[in-house]
Each structure stands twice: as C-alpha cells, then as structure tokens.
Simulated assay, not measured.
Amino acid sequence: MRFFPLIAVALALSSAAPALGQGATGLPAPEPGSVDTLRARKREYTLFRPVPKALMRPLSTDRPDATESAYSVDAGHFQVETDVLRLGRSRFDEQTAQEELAINHANLKLGLSHNVDLQVVVESYTIQTEGSPETGTRRAGFGDITVRLKRNLWGNDGGATAFALMPFVKLPTGRNCGNGAWEGGIVTPFSVQLPHDFTLGTQLQATLNRDSEAAEHFLELAPTITIGHDLYKTLGGFVEIASAWDTRARAWTATLNGGPTLRLGDNLQLDTGINLALTKDTETTYFLGFSFRR
C-alpha cells in the first residue's frame, strides 16, 4: 500500500491549491474587468446553495474521449455521464481473444464549490470472456468503484485555457470482474480554445496499477491529445490519440479514438464512437453513451 501517501498528498493539493487564473471557456467574452466579478459571484454558491441557471457554464463532460475535461460541475448541480454499452475486443493469436461488454458504466458527478466536484465512477455490470471458444472462461457481475476529486485551477469561468488536477482512488469492489486491488493516481487535464470552433485537449495520467501475480504495484503513464470541433449548432465530433507507457514492461499501447456528439438542449448530450487499437494486444472498443445535467 505504498501508494496511499501519494494519493493523500494529491488529494490535499487539489483541495487546498489556490485559484491561479481567469475563469470558463465557452461562455461569451466578458466585458473588461467583469471576469473577476463573475468569479467572485460564483464563489458565493455551494453544494447547498446551487448556482443559478443564468450563471451556469455550458455542459462540459469527461466523455466520450479519454481526455478528461478541465472544467468542474457548477456548485450544487449533479451530472451523470455513462457508457450505455461498450464492447471491447483484443486478439492475442488466432485461437485466443479477450472480450468485454460493459453495461451502464457511469460517472456520477456532484459540484461541491465553484471549482471542485466529486465524482464516483461505478462499473454497474460487466461481462468478460477470455481464451479460446472451447476452453475459455467467462466472468460477469458488478465491478470496481473509482472515487475522483476534480479541482479546476484556472479557466472555469472565462479565458482561452483551463487546467485542473484530479486525483483518484479505485476501490476493489468487484468480486468476479476486477483485479481485487486498490489502485490510484492523478490526472492533469488541460484545454485550449482554438479559432473556428476547434478545441484542443491534452492530459497526463499517472496510475499505480497492481500486478496480482507479481504482488506489486507499478507505474503507468498515459498521455493523450484530442481535437474537438462543432460541425453544426448541435452536432460535434472529436479525434484523439490515447496512449499508455508501462514503466515496468517498458512498452507502449495506443489507440486512435473518434466519434460524433449530439447535443439535445443545454443539459443532454449523446455520443458514440470507436477506440481503434494501434498497437499489438490492445483492445479495440465500440461505445454508445450519454451525459445529463441538472
């Protein structure tokens, strides 16, 4: 459990770090001197005193790409982001393959303050099959739970860039699905608004994973970069490269991700897409999901 001090320090930093910048990309450009006024007004609102609709930020989600959003949920508001269905498949040779069907893997988010939200990621139901058709194994059931705390450092309510810190801890709640181990790490999402309705997002995620066979933790570093674009008022899309470096095996994995998003009002978004494997033994996945805020 040597990684718990690291997680505790990350949680403390994300909760105590001072706000460093202007405030959220996506809002109309403020008048000179009004950004600080807006930020000061929104500091008055808390979990038990929600931000009024007129001051809420545009809907910003951590899905469907792997790159997390740098923006937090407005104080006192609740947001659900879920994979309704996600089907993944990786083939190791002609006889052996691994498949996973995820059903309603949901991220439940609650705005605690003007720049902090609490997230609980629940793997509601998973079906995993591995091996050849004759001798393969099948597992199914409730999976692990991940608790995350996002702290936006700047850009929540105005400005061309935004940055956040998001430490997380994975709880080994899955009996049949999961590795039965505590894991954790930190994510550092960064966002830039580009001309002509383009958005650039990038992050580095550092995770202490558990190898059950070796009975030890190892560090995985996962950089990503994504570009989103609004095609029409309600239709957008993204293209992303997501990768991971296993520091123990000294090996890269990578996927090319993309898909459309459909906004149905200010508080509902649908999405679908594919994560296409670019490296050997990497899973290719297809997904369908939605995000909702109230």
Rank of each mutant, 00 (worst) to 15 (best):
Y286G: 13
R86S: 15
H105A: 13
G23H: 09
D62Y: 00
K42D: 07
L153K: 00
T37Q: 14
A206I: 07
G259A: 06
V192M: 07
R139I: 05
G258Y: 10
G26A: 09
Q79E: 06
G236M: 01
T285G: 10
V239F: 13
N152W: 02
T129D: 03
R151H: 15
G143E: 01
Q205R: 11
G26H: 08
A277C: 03
L208I: 00
L288V: 15
Q193K: 14
V147Y: 01
L47D: 08
G76I: 11
G180R: 05
G159H: 13
A16F: 04
M1I: 15
M56P: 02
L262M: 12
F78N: 03
W182A: 10
F92G: 06
G136D: 10
F190S: 04
E216D: 14
E31F: 01
G158F: 09
R43P: 04
S14K: 06
L59N: 04
A251E: 08
H77N: 12
H196R: 15
A8L: 14
N107S: 14
D36V: 13
T285L: 12
F218A: 02
D211Y: 02
Q193M: 13
G76T: 13
P32F: 00
D271N: 14
L268H: 10
A106F: 01
E213C: 01
G236E: 02
T207H: 02
L200E: 04
F78P: 00
L194Y: 06
D211H: 02
A249T: 01
N107Q: 14
G88Q: 08
Q203L: 09
A10Y: 06
L276M: 09
Y45T: 08
G141M: 05
G141C: 07
D246P: 01
P172I: 05
S69G: 11
I241F: 04
T161R: 10
G174I: 04
H114S: 14
V192I: 12
E240H: 10
P133C: 15
L27T: 05
S69R: 01
L11F: 13
L149R: 07
T96G: 05
T199S: 15
Q119K: 09
T255W: 00
P223Q: 07
L270D: 05
Q119I: 08
T25Q: 12
L262A: 09
R148V: 01
H196G: 09
R41L: 09
T261I: 08
H114E: 15
L20T: 09
F238C: 05
G158V: 07
T82N: 08
K170E: 12
S291F: 03
I127P: 04
A254P: 02
R63V: 04
T247N: 03
A140D: 15
S34F: 12
V192F: 06
I227T: 12
R175I: 08
F142L: 08
N267T: 14
L262H: 06
P223E: 03
